[in-house]
Nucleic acid binder design. Structure first.
Length: 594
RNA sequence: GGCCCAAUAGCUCAAUUGGAUAGAGCAACAGCCUUCUAAGCUGUAGGUUUCUGGUUCGAUCCCAGAUUGGGUCACCA
């Protein structure tokens, strides 16, 4: 429709003023809701052609468009804005076509669709997931759903950072002071248990450093010489050398962590199509780095450490292999990338990783390019902002980290309290209630995080629990539940809801609702292009806000005119399914009752 | 210090990518349940869009500089 108007405007300028306008100069946008009209043409850019006032130009343009486009019934002019008004029948037609689609606004992939691989989550196996990981997981999952809805094939992947010096630290602490504690013996969740030993290592290390400083050396020297750190380094060396005892300890502790992670992922409702483990990709990366040395792409120092010199590319020198031969983070990322591209015919690779790693991905992209991979430059780092607390960044050492499992449990608790106070679920079984509490709690958490522009730093205040009123997930879930309630009443009354509506007169609210509804496909498309779940969240909120006013002002079931009653039922049903589809792109479920 | 990013109502966030009178929610205040679910709806109040210049018909948006905050520059990940 916008394209039709745009073309007609170009035609009109040509006919009226004998000038050619560039397509980009013609701006057709939805009319803001304070003004009457459906689409608005901005006429300012045409003034240099018409050489008359903005109002007059708009007048002439408006007359031309009314005469040449059947759907346009009239227009009004405010300053340089030409507001076009459509016939009712146009909006009825929009609604009918929305209904006729199986999943309105959602495309599905065909055989030739491009394949997008999306990496997200990527946890370290030395500590449990926290709030930062939650943003990552929710964004990664939602972007995957949005890309699918835009017709791409999607492979969701996870690279588990299961090896490295940090993993050895929790292993070493457990070995020294753990006394054989296991998840079974302690009743602790596996990832939490291992996390405690990671913290323990830091305490032991700090104590050793403090003791060494009293012997008269500097703090920097002490940090370098602390025995426990050297033991951790030695453990990493042994691990890379396949020492059986080290490997056995590693397998055991990692398995505890995986059991814990699986539980958290399941609660969050996220999943993966393919999981890679750093422990099995880093050797491929190491081989690539060594090939790079042979081909003169990287340089090896006298102490055998390997470096990439990126100074000619405006970056610094980067280490790729330590002098003891062990690998770093970058090494394995090179290997993982190579393996992925041989495993899948990837057209687009998206890394969902925080913006603190922008530099890392610049370097990775460049290194892969230097190693001769043509896709190296095409890696897309989807860099999202941090989650901050009122005191600033989360710091594990200061104990300010918001644990993922605790947060969700707390939310479920709040959901239960709110629900019990309202007492709407008193007739339901405990099991049904629990399911709804869970759904509402996660709806609140997910919406809270996903409605914010992913690129921006966001703030989370643990003191104030996440709201359930206003612009929130539960508000939208509630509206969905209300719609389902009306639809159930219709079924009880023996009304069959039609699948198409005839050409009836629409109230202003009704045409506004259809207008918003008809923007859903565009919202999905834009969310895909911008990798932004927030655009979907904002769309659903606008729709729901408008619907609640309609619901409040107008009766559906008590409407005397049967045709209008059925129309409203169909409208409500379509809005309900769009809420559901929209929320599914955010990974949020909607309840039939709440 | 070099490079990168951000700054919008008391607080948390929007603003159709340069358009109209900058919008929501929370918090505050005043209303609305005998009516399809009040987790709702209506109203009041709240702004020099950090500051100074520039670009143009028009700037929260683009450019330059400043201020403030954050990130990053490891033989950490």
């Amino acid at each position: 429709m916008e394209i039709l108007i745009r073309n007609k405007v170009i035609e009109a300028i040509k006919t009226l003023y004998g000038q050619d306008v560039d397509e980009n100069q013609v701006q057709v946008q939805s009319t803001r809701k304070e003004f009457t009209g459906d689409k608005t043409v901005v006429v300012f850019p045409f003034l240099r052609f018409s050489k008359i006032s903005a109002e007059q130009t708009a007048e002439e343009l408006g007359n031309y468009l009314v005469a040449s486009i059947e759907i346009i019934s009239g227009f009004n002019i405010v300053k340089g804005f030409l507001n076009l008004i459509f016939h009712n029948s146009y909006w009825i037609k929009q609604l009918n076509s929305a209904i006729s689609e199986e999943k309105y606004g959602i495309r599905s992939a065909n055989k030739d669709a491009e394949l997008v691989m999306i990496e997200y989550s990527s946890p370290n196996t030395n500590k449990p997931l926290h709030l930062g990981h939650i943003r990552n997981n929710l964004l990664g999952f939602s972007i995957s759903e949005i890309m699918k809805a835009n017709g791409y094939k999607v492979v969701k992947t996870n690279i588990v950072n299961d090896r490295g010096i940090h993993i050895c630290k929790s292993m070493l602490a457990w070995k020294q002071v753990g006394k054989g504690e296991t998840p079974q013996s302690s009743g602790k969740k596996g990832d939490h248990l291992v996390g405690e030993y990671y913290v323990k290592f830091d305490q032991l290390y700090k104590k050793e450093v403090a003791d060494l400083v009293t012997t008269g050396i500097t703090e920097d020297q002490a940090k370098e010489q602390a025995p426990i750190l050297n033991e951790a380094r030695e453990m990493l060396r042994l691990w890379e050398a396949n020492d059986p005892a080290t490997r056995e300890l590693w397998s055991m502790m990692n398995s505890w962590v995986y059991t814990g992670f699986d539980e958290t992922y399941k609660t969050l409702g996220v999943d993966f199509d393919k999981i890679y483990y750093e422990s099995s990709t880093y050797t491929v990366g190491r081989d690539e780095v060594l090939r790079g040395v042979q081909e003169g792409i990287f340089e090896q120092m006298d102490d055998t450490s390997v470096w990439a010199n990126l100074e000619n590319d405006g970056l610094d020198r980067k280490i790729l292999l330590r002098s003891d031969g062990t690998s770093v983070y970058m090494t394995q990322d090179i290997g993982t990338a190579k393996i992925r591209y041989t495993d899948y015919p990837i057209d687009h690779m998206i890394y969902v990783v925080g913006n603190e790693q922008i530099y890392h991905f610049q370097v990775l992209s460049l290194l892969l390019d230097k190693l001769g991979y043509k896709w190296g430059k095409d890696l897309y780092h989807f860099s999202y902002g941090m989650v901050e607390l009122p005191q600033g960044r989360m710091k594990s050492r200061e104990g300010t980290v918001v644990d993922a499992d605790d947060l969700v449990a707390g939310m479920v608790d709040v959901a239960r309290k709110v629900s019990e106070e309202l007492g709407k679920l008193d007739n339901y079984s405990d099991q049904e209630k629990q399911k709804i509490y869970q759904m509402v709690a996660l709806g609140a958490l997910k919406y809270f995080i996903l409605k914010v522009d992913p690129k921006k730093t966001m703030l989370f205040n643990p003191e104030e629990s996440i709201d359930f009123n206003g612009n929130t997930g539960p508000f939208i879930q509630y509206t969905y539940a209300r719609i389902q309630s009306v639809l159930r009443k219709a079924v009880d009354a023996g009304i069959t809801i039609p699948t198409q509506v005839p050409n009836i007169e629409l109230s202003e609210k009704e045409s506004t609702l259809i207008k918003i509804l008809s923007g859903f496909p565009d919202a999905v498309k834009e969310a895909g292009e911008n990798h932004s779940p927030a655009l979907v969240a904002n769309f659903v909120y606008d729709l729901v806000k408008e619907f609640n006013q309609f619901y409040h002002d107008v009766t559906i079931m008590n409407e005397p005119d049967e045709e209008i009653r059925k129309f409203r039922l169909l409208l409500a049903q379509t809005i309900g399914s769009t809420i559901k589809n929209g929320f599914s792109l955010l990974g949020i479920d909607v309840p039939e009752r709440m």
